[in-house]
């Protein structure tokens, strides 16, 4: 006996209409593929054009980045070091505060506190980054200069610290999700063995949720690496290879902003540097995102 699909229309005109709608919807879903393809191809296309003018060896070994000066040097390291430095400072703030907040909210706080505090903390992640940049430059830097008189007006310290504040809710929220997902049977078993609340939280629940917690930290780091306005406003525009947090530096994202603010002729070498730097940035975040994805899949404890 033939089974009829009830969802298929009997009227042939309507059947054609249904088909057209389905194809239109499929195209909408395919736009995301086109977006990725567009990103990858435009980055690769212009990066290849860049490396036809500048040797890849110079890009990876030179320690100076001066493409806009008469004496052009194309070493990516000053931009990479500044990106890593500001991101690392941000993690020093975001990881301990975010993780402790997550453990507290998941294992110690009652339901009412959790439901009030989590959305409040998430406001921090919704503030536009240009606002954080303004705050770092006009509030935190003058404040820190009272304690560190040698601190430059533009520095990676206050940019990094403020970026860390912005990332607290990412670590806190995603880690809290991972901790809450650990089944109650584990908590009950640990309490049954005479563990205290602290021991349940830190020795049982945290290890059980560790993949999700690490994924949240890696994701926050990836956000810090790609963050633009805070560092463009507060960290300076001076490409230099240093890990001194008190001096102006230039991250990969600040460089893209600096070149974009000027008038860059299409096809010029400085136009190509945008994409070479953008491609490097994309690789960094891509590797971090894949790692975070892999971490969750590989080390996830499966409970039934």
């Amino acid at each position: 006996m033939a089974v009829t699909d009830l969802r298929k229309p009997i009227n042939p005109v309507r059947a054609i209409g249904e088909r057209i709608i389905q194809i239109a919807l499929l195209l909408a879903a395919a736009v995301s593929i086109f977006t990725t393809a567009g990103i990858v191809f435009s980055l690769i296309f212009e990066t290849i054009a860049f490396f036809s003018e500048v040797s890849i060896i110079e890009f990876l070994t030179d320690t100076e980045w001066t493409p806009l000066f008469a004496n052009q040097r194309f070493g990516i390291w000053p931009l990479v070091s500044a990106t890593v430095l500001t991101s690392a400072i941000a993690m020093v703030v975001a990881v301990p505060l975010g993780l402790i907040a997550a453990i507290f909210l998941s294992e110690f706080a009652n339901d009412r506190v959790r439901r009030t505090v989590k959305p409040l903390l998430e406001i921090l992640a919704g503030i536009p980054t240009v606002v954080y940049g303004y705050f770092a430059l006009t509030f935190l830097t003058p404040l820190l200069r009272n304690f560190i008189p040698t601190l430059s007006i533009f520095n990676s310290l206050s940019a990094g610290l403020i970026m860390g504040v912005m990332l607290i809710p990412i670590v806190a929220s995603l880690s809290e999700d991972a901790l809450s997902a650990v089944p109650n049977s584990l908590r009950e078993a640990a309490y049954g063995l005479g563990s205290t609340r602290f021991e349940v939280a830190v020795h049982v629940i945290l290890p059980a949720a560790i993949s999700g917690v690490i994924a949240s930290i890696v994701l926050a780091f990836s956000r810090a690496v790609g963050e633009t306005m805070i560092v463009a406003i507060a960290a300076g525009q001076n490409p230099r290879l240093t890990f001194d947090p008190t001096v102006p530096v230039m991250t990969m994202t600040s460089y893209i902003v600096q070149v974009s603010l000027g008038d860059t002729p299409y096809g010029s070498l400085s136009y190509h540097t945008l994409y070479a730097v953008g491609f490097t940035l994309f690789l960094f975040t891509f590797v971090l995102n894949i790692f975070s994805y892999w971490m969750v899949r590989k080390f996830r404890e499966v409970y039934d």
Binding site: T35, I39, L43, L219, E227, T228, I256, F282, T285
Partner: peptide
């Protein structure tokens, strides 16, 4: 998870 500035380059 792609940084927003990369969308700008696109």
């Amino acid at each position: 998870a792609v940084p927003s500035i990369i969308y700008g380059l696109l």
